[in-house]
Amino acid sequence: MDLAPPVPDPTARSIAQDRARIRYALLGAFALTAGLWLAWLAAWLLGWNLDELGITPRQPTGLIGILTAPLAHASFAHLVSNTLPIALLTTLTLYNYPRGARLALPLIWLLSGLGVWLFARDSVHVGASGIANGLMLFLFIAGLLRRDRLAVVTALVVFFLYGSMLASVLPTEQHISFEYHLAGAISGVISAILFFRRDPLPPRKRYSWEDEPEEPVESEELELPRPADVPVLWQRNAPPQGAQIIVFRQRPLPPRAPD
Rank of each mutant, 00 (worst) to 15 (best):
L45E: 12
G184V: 01
G54W: 01
E210K: 02
A155M: 00
L114W: 07
V217A: 07
G130L: 08
N49R: 08
S81A: 15
P85Y: 13
L53W: 08
A142N: 06
R19P: 04
G115L: 04
V247W: 08
W40D: 05
I66V: 13
L166R: 01
P106R: 05
A228R: 11
L63S: 03
E210A: 08
L194D: 07
L144D: 06
R236S: 12
A31C: 10
P213D: 05
L161G: 09
P213W: 01
G127P: 05
D199T: 00
E212Q: 11
L144F: 08
S168P: 11
L50T: 15
V152L: 13
I245H: 08
I246M: 13
L84P: 00
W117D: 00
L41H: 09
V247H: 10
P231V: 10
L150A: 14
S14K: 06
L182M: 10
A128H: 07
M136T: 01
E214L: 12
L46V: 14
F160P: 01
N96I: 05
V126R: 01
G130H: 03
L45R: 05
L88Y: 07
L26Y: 11
L156M: 13
A87F: 15
I55K: 01
L224M: 08
W37F: 09
G115Q: 03
I55R: 03
W117M: 04
R147H: 12
R198C: 09
L156I: 15
L107Q: 08
L92F: 10
W48H: 11
E220H: 12
F140V: 00
G188I: 00
P70H: 02
G115Y: 05
